[in-house]
Design a binder for these strands. Structure first.
Length: 368
DNA sequence: TAATCGTGGGC
DNA sequence: TGCCCAAGATT
């Protein structure tokens, strides 16, 4: 029995009857129309968990090949827990949001130590794992363990905002909390696994962000936004700032067939990834001096040879202008450390690089 | 609360 | 071409 009507949540008025109808239509539609995705062919909580983490802010088509390779390489919690971190990061290369990979491995290690290798099946325990927030906890619990908890992602926010004509800003955390209560109220008892996925599937394939396919929607006759012709105006989202420009100077130091690469700090942007030594440009001095300053810090004397390439790359919040120069080391070469390696140009592919630097590697391989 | 944290696809 | 955005979490 439901403790509380969504009517009391101040976000939408929904009767039990309407909720039941939505559930029936959605479940029927889902059974008929659901896509055949690889992680829907397993009940292994670990594999489902991996898929949910990869799918965070990432398209299904992008994730599929990554998930296949990742599960192939790390088929169990134990395999992932005992793998070198470098290997995990390499498997994640190109997916973005690399802290997801680091958190996932940390979480899996915790599962092995604290929960005997079994993914916990309570909201409190699974939510305490690093990288497992409200959505991922709900998704894994409902899909893998059939627990009746909501899993509210961007799709669900959009579907519910339209279905109930909710005009509050979905970017606000307080509003999301309300959506979770609403989503929970809608779950047909015992059917959270299919219902949560149905809600997401509808958002991904029918109730899409722009020009929703309302004629194909099983909920059209129940949709308050559609009734008002408001479907394209919802959901309401706050606007985001444009990316901040950052100018970087990058030194590609070659000694024979080897190149100097450095590892980024384990916190912050592109944490733990390898790159060619780079430094935010100090506009008050010359490029030459910026490069000298960069390699002073690394303990490597160099001589600047020529300009190599300019690479632009835009992140969600930063726009990189990367000015790359070829440099010649003045002996002796700095010794290798944990964060600094001399690597054969043809072996750079063994290291995980951000996309901005893979562009440089391509140019380098084309040249050598 | 508002920032931070990536990337590739679609229009 | 530039911009929006996609199965979010953390601080």
């Amino acid at each position: 029995m439901k403790k509380r009507l969504a009517a009391n949540t101040k976000i939408a008025d929904v009767s039990y009857q309407e909720a039941a109808l939505i559930g029936q239509r959605l479940l029927t539609w889902y059974e008929e129309k659901k896509r055949d995705l690889p992680w829907r062919r397993t009940r292994d909580p670990y594999k489902i968990w991996v898929s949910e983490v990869m799918l965070q802010q990432t398209r299904v088509e992008t994730v599929i090949p990554y998930w296949e390779r990742f599960i192939d390489k790390f088929p169990t919690i134990q395999a992932l827990a005992h793998a070198p971190e470098e290997e995990v990061l390499k498997a994640w290369e190109g997916l973005g949001y690399y802290s997801r990979a680091r958190n996932l491995q940390a979480a899996v290690r915790e599962v092995e130590e604290r929960y005997g290798g079994q993914v916990p099946d309570t909201l409190e325990e699974i939510s305490s794992l690093p990288g497992v927030g409200s959505y991922t906890a709900g998704a894994v619990l409902s899909i893998a363990y059939d627990v009746d908890v909501p899993a509210v992602d961007g799709n669900v926010l959009r579907v519910l905002a339209r279905l109930f004509l909710i005009e509050q800003d979905i970017m606000k955390q307080r509003v999301r909390k309300r959506f979770e209560e609403l989503a929970e109220f809608l779950i047909p008892p015992g059917r959270a696994a299919s219902f949560n996925q149905a809600l997401m599937e509808l958002g991904a394939t029918v109730c899409i962000p722009k020009v929703p396919r309302c004629p194909q929607c099983p909920l059209q006759s129940l949709c308050r936004a559609y009734a008002e012709g408001m479907q394209e105006e919802l959901p309401v989202k706050g606007k985001k700032k444009p990316p901040r420009p950052v100018d970087l100077v990058t030194g590609i130091v070659r000694s024979g067939d080897r190149v100097l690469i450095v590892k980024r700090p384990l916190q912050g942007l592109l944490a733990g990834m390898w790159e060619f030594p780079s430094l935010e440009i100090n506009e008050r001095v010359t490029i030459e001096e910026n490069l000298q300053s960069l390699f002073d810090r690394l303990g490597q004397r160099i001589e600047v040879e020529t300009f190599f390439a300019k690479v632009e790359h835009t992140f969600s919040h930063i726009h990189w202008n990367l000015h790359a120069y070829l440099c010649k080391p003045i002996l002796p070469l700095v010794p290798e450390t944990e964060e600094m390696r001399w690597v054969n140009v043809y072996e750079l592919h063994q290291y995980a690089f951000p996309v901005a630097h893979t562009k440089l590697i391509q140019a380098l391989n084309g040249m050598v």
